[in-house]
Write a protein that binds this DNA or RNA. Structure first.
Lengths: 215, 215
DNA sequence: TAGATTGTTAATCGATTAACAATC
DNA sequence: TAGATTGTTAATCGATTAACAATC
């Protein structure tokens, strides 16, 4: 008895799963029913052992000489990530990035169903963006409960991010996908995943610097 | 003689630099002229040794008992990343995400100057988006040379990403910031940095799954 | 001086890769 | 059967963390 160790998987491996999934869906569409690690590794520029380890994480079992069954592997990855069912999400902050995310059709095939958006701007409230209603912040708590939203997407300016996060947490949201540069404070019962463009830009800049100054 | 080993820095450390920079700029605006690792680590939720190692990478030297001089540390980070001068960038693919990036003012304070955009859509060509001209793809090579663009931002649909990348490489671009899900092929002389939303979503989904199913 | 803080060397931890046994 | 491929255990590599010496 007591709290389970809550088996944790390597983040780098989890991050690679969508890469596999994309390739596998292509292969599936082409009617291929089996694929080997060698093939996947070759195509994605990874090591064969790494691919095997990553895939093993999802519970899939391959067959020597044959490889992995494509449809079963797709199912295994989707089920491991919870992408076999749609998770209800809402978005706060209908600026440029928020609007782009509302219009990004791909999330649907990745387990995320963005149902409604919220903003403080009276010019935006009442409109529909990519088919989704933009409601006032005051409606957040009630609507979130109504639709049983589990994920909150934060695309507000930095100054508003923590305040919005508090509202999301109080509204019963369990995961926050944060596109603002702020380090959000949340209770342990809520998960935060950050997407910070400038972090990625730093790596780009540093590597560009390096190839430009052969010093 | 011979090719230098080209000293490489840990990617995780480089990715953390914008986090430090953001805090330091805040402190600087408040007029603080020195800051300790303890303070930084506390504020960002990191370890003090990690902060020291990361900052040491930029060449900054601190003073025991005092800490680091804030303005000098900002300069050190900016110069390490090449953010002390604007790097000229162009963007290809003026869809939702592309437009959002064109309007994202923050990149200017992170060394990136997005000068012009390109698209294939006749409805978009000739327009201005967030003050930037949208030109036809045919104009890419000439304009890229004219403005001496070093960075190409790829925000086109997956199907077009590799083709566009080829055009960018031929136009003399040295770094590609790729927002498409495709693994781009480029020569060794060109750097690619990927931003893939669904990779981040995978981590979010898996962690959400984990807190929802206490199993 | 005493003590806070930096800088560095050594130990730990976790992910990747290599070696090899198992199996269809 | 032979050989390709999976699955796993051990070795390596790199990043983080701990211990401690240096210094203002």
């Amino acid at each position: 008895m007591g709290a389970q160790p809550a088996k944790s998987y390597p983040v780098p491996s989890v991050r690679r799963l969508p890469l596999y999934l994309r390739l596998l869906r292509q292969l599936n569409a082409q009617g291929r029913d089996a694929v080997s690690c060698t093939y996947i590794a070759e195509d994605l520029g990874l090591g064969t052992v790494q691919v095997r380890k990553d895939l093993a994480m999802t519970g899939i079992v391959g067959r020597p000489k044959v490889g992995y069954p494509v449809p079963a592997l797709i199912d295994a990855i989707e089920s491991f990530l919870g992408w076999d069912h749609a998770t209800v999400a809402l978005l706060v902050g209908v600026g440029g990035l928020g609007s782009a995310i509302l219009g990004y059709e791909d999330f649907k095939s990745h387990g995320l169903n963005i149902v409604v958006a919220f903003d403080v701007d009276p010019m935006k409230i009442g409109r529909r963006v990519h088919g989704k209603d933009v409601l006032p912040m005051e409606a957040l708590a009630e609507r979130a409960a109504q639709i049983r939203a589990l994920v909150g997407i934060v695309t507000v300016p930095a100054a508003a991010a923590q305040e919005v996060t508090g509202q999301l947490v109080r509204a019963g949201i369990r995961a926050i996908w944060n596109f603002s540069p702020v380090n959000l404070e949340v209770p342990d019962s809520v998960v935060v995943q950050n997407v910070r463009f400038v972090d990625s830009l730093a790596v780009l800049s540093q590597r560009l610097n390096q190839i430009l100054t052969p010093d």
